[in-house]
Design a protein around this nucleic acid. Structure first.
Lengths: 358, 358
DNA sequence: AGGCGTGGTGAGAGCGCTCCTACCCCCTCG
DNA sequence: CGAGGGGGTAGGAGCGCTCTCACCACGCCT
C-alpha cells in the first residue's frame, strides 16, 4: 500500500528558494494531499476523492475513516489541481470597470458585492476582484482565458468592457441594465430606475411641491439617465416645468456642489437626488444656505443607504435592495453555471421610504 | 511532430454537459494550450513555455514565431495548470473579517483595496475577496490550504481570525496594527493613530476650544482605541477635562446619534470624531439642533475622505493615506513573496487638513 | 585535436486531483 | 448452482503547465 510514487520528485524540489514558508521553522513542509489522506485511511485515492466530494456509494465506515484522516492531517483540497482536472475554476470574477471604480466607495456597490459574497458562501466559489484596468485587454484576456467560471459586472458605463459581445465564453450577470444594447448574451439584475424615481418624485408632488429640481447622477450610467427620466416623467405628467436639473456624479461632494448651483438659480421647493449620498450633500448645502428641510425645500433621495438614515433630517428615499441584487446576481450566475435557464432580465422591486426630509 | 497525445481523452470528454459555452454555436471548443501553440510554431512545449514566461536563451526568431502563434490562436495560459506546476497560485486574498464587513461601505476600506489592486495591476497576481464568514474555520482552511500565496487583512477587530498565530503559512500583511499582540509573524502598514488624533485635537486647543468632546470609533478596533487615546492625551496635557466621550461605530449614523447624546449632556465647544463619516453625521445633528459649526462647536474628523469635502461646512480632518496604504501593503506582500525582508511595521505619515469646520 | 563551456532546444516526469473503467465480492434469481 | 447484477473500490489516464536534465551544435582554448 501507498508506495509513495513521487519520493524522488519530492527530493529534487525540496531545495526551492524564495517562496519558502516564513513561519515554519521545521522547514518547508508540503501540505497533505489526497494521496496522503488515502494512505492514512487505508483506501485508494479515488475513494478518498469520493468522500471529499460527498459522492455516494462509499461504505459508511470508509467515509468515517477518510474523514478522520482528513481531520488529523488538516487536509485541504488543492484548488488548482481540482480546477485543472475538473476544467472549471470555481472562481467568479467581480468586475468593476475603471470608470466605475471611483464609485467603489459608494455603499451601494459595496453592498451588492457583499450580497453576492454572502450568497456564494457555502458554495465553493470564490470571488475574484477585477478592478478596472487601463489595459482593458489584459482583464479581458483574463476573463476569457478560462480563468474564471463566470463574471459579475457591477455597474457599467457605456463603452465599458463590452463584455456582452465578442465571445466572452462564460456566463455573465450585470448589476443594472447595460447602457449598450445587448443581444442574447448576458443577464441582468436591476430595478426599474425610471419608475422608482418617478415614485419618489410623485411623492413630492403629493406633498404639494411644484417647483421640483433634480440632482441627476452620471449620465453615462443607465441608472443616472433613467432616474432623470423618471423625474421628468412625473413633472411632465403634472404639467410642471422640468428645467431645474443639475448633474452630479453620485458622490456626496457632487451633491453639495449641485445644490449650491441650484441655490444660485430660480426658486424651488423640492429636490430629487439620484442617490442618497448626493441628497446628503445637498442637505448640507441647504443647511449652510439657511434653508430648512423639509420646510423650505423637501428632499428625496435614492438607494436607502446608511446616509439617508444618518442625515438630519433623515432622508426620504427610494429603497433599492442592493444586498438582494448581489444575492440574486450570484444566484443567477450559479444557475447558469449549472446549465439552467434564467430570465435574461430580472427586475427587483423598490419602495418609497418616507422619512423626515419630505 | 506534435503527435496529439490525448486524442482519446479528448474524445471521451467532448460530450460534457452543463457548463457549455453559451456563445459559441460551433459547440464547446477547448481553448488552445501550450501544446497547440508549440505545434503551430514548430517548437517543443518547453520552448513555447520559455517564450510565454519571457525566459532568455531562446533564439529571437523562435520567440517571434511563438508569439505569432500565441497571437493567432489567442492563447491564454491556464492559470490552474500553472499554479499546480509552480506550486504557487498567483492569488492574494483580501480578507475583510465579518465584524468589519459592515464597514465595507466605508470609503476607507474600499480605497485601501483599490490602492492594493492598483499596485497589483501589472503583476500577474489576482485579488481574491474573502468577506467574513460565519464559519471562520472555512475561510481559515481556505487561506491555509495553499489556495493563496499571500493575505492582505483589511482591518481586524480583536479576536478576528487570529491569523497571525497558528501557522498561517503564507505571508500576511495587515492594514493597521493588530489589536492582539503578535509575535514575529505578520506585517503591518499603519498610521500612528494616536499621534494623528492628537494632532487633530491639538488643533482644536489651538483654536481656543477647551470643552472638547469626542465621538470615538469602535473600541474593539485598534484604530478606535488609539484615536480615543490621542484625544485623551491632548486634553490631559492641556489640563482639560476629558469626560465627554460617546462611542460610535464609524458609520455616519452612529455619528449622528452620538452627537445627539452629547447635545443632551453638558456644554462643549468642539468635538473630535474618529472618522469623517461620524463627523458628517455629527454635523447633521448639530445643524438640526441649531448649533453653528464652527461657531458654537468646532468639528474635526479623521480620514480625509470624500465626506469631509462634501459636508457644509467642509470638515477639518486628519488625512490618512488610504490608497497609499493599500499600495504599500501590496508592495510589502510582493516583497515577502519574493523572499525579501520587509520591516514588520510600517507607519505612514498623516497630516492635518484644515477646512471650514474648525 | 581533444576538451570544454555555452547558447539553444527537446524530452519527460511530475504538480494533485477527477473520473472513467475495470474489477471484485457477494447476494439474488432462475 | 451458475449467471447476473449491483454496490463498492482500485487503477490509471489525463488536465495544461513548469522545470530539471540531457543533449546537440558550435566555437574557443590549450
Amino acid at each position: 500500500m501507498a508506495k509513495k510514487p513521487s519520493e524522488q520528485q519530492r527530493e529534487r524540489s525540496r531545495p526551492r528558494k524564495g517562496v519558502d514558508v516564513l513561519d515554519d521553522p521545521s522547514g518547508p513542509t508540503r501540505p497533505p494531499t489526497l494521496e496522503t489522506v488515502a494512505a492514512r485511511a487505508g483506501v485508494s485515492r479515488a475513494t478518498a476523492s469520493r468522500v471529499v466530494n460527498h459522492l455516494d456509494r462509499v461504505a459508511p465506515h470508509v467515509v468515517a475513516s477518510v474523514n478522520a484522516a482528513i481531520e488529523e492531517l488538516g487536509y485541504v483540497p488543492n484548488q488548482a489541481a481540482r480546477s485543472l482536472a475538473r476544467r472549471r475554476t470555481a472562481v467568479i470574477a467581480v468586475v468593476i470597470p475603471e470608470s466605475t471604480e471611483r464609485l467603489f466607495a459608494d455603499p451601494f456597490f459595496a453592498t451588492v458585492v457583499q450580497g453576492a459574497a454572502a450568497h456564494l458562501r457555502g458554495t465553493d466559489y470564490t470571488l475574484n476582484l477585477v478592478l478596472g484596468s487601463d489595459q482593458e485587454d489584459k482583464s479581458r484576456r483574463y476573463l476569457t482565458g478560462g480563468n474564471v467560471d463566470g463574471v459579475l459586472v457591477v455597474s457599467q458605463h457605456e463603452g465599458d468592457l463590452p463584455l456582452t459581445r465578442l465571445g466572452l465564453s462564460v456566463p455573465i450577470v450585470f448589476a443594472g441594465r447595460p447602457a449598450v444594447d445587448f443581444g442574447e448574451h448576458g443577464h441582468f439584475v436591476d430595478v426599474d430606475n425610471r419608475a422608482a424615481a418617478a415614485t419618489g418624485v410623485r411623492h413630492l408632488v403629493e406633498r404639494g411641491r411644484s417647483r421640483i429640481a433634480t440632482i441627476a447622477g452620471a449620465q453615462d450610467l443607465a441608472a443616472g439617465r433613467d432616474r432623470l427620466a423618471g423625474w421628468q416623467d412625473v413633472l411632465t405628467d403634472a404639467g410642471f416645468d422640468s428645467d431645474l436639473v443639475e448633474v452630479g456624479d453620485f458622490t456626496p461632494e457632487s451633491g453639495t456642489v449641485a445644490m449650491e448651483r441650484l441655490l444660485d438659480g430660480p426658486e424651488f421647493d423640492a429636490v430629487f437626488a439620484a442617490n442618497d449620498q448626493m441628497a446628503f450633500g445637498a442637505i448640507s448645502a441647504l443647511a449652510r444656505a439657511g434653508r430648512s428641510v423639509p420646510g423650505d425645500v423637501a428632499v428625496v433621495g435614492f438607494d436607502d443607504d446608511q446616509f439617508s438614515r444618518a442625515a438630519r433630517p433623515t432622508i426620504t428615499t427610494v429603497h433599492q435592495p442592493a444586498r438582494e441584487m448581489g444575492a440574486v446576481m450570484a444566484a443567477h450566475l450559479l444557475a447558469l453555471l449549472a446549465g439552467e435557464r434564467v430570465d435574461q432580465v430580472t427586475v427587483l422591486p423598490t419602495r418609497l421610504v418616507v422619512r423626515e426630509s419630505s
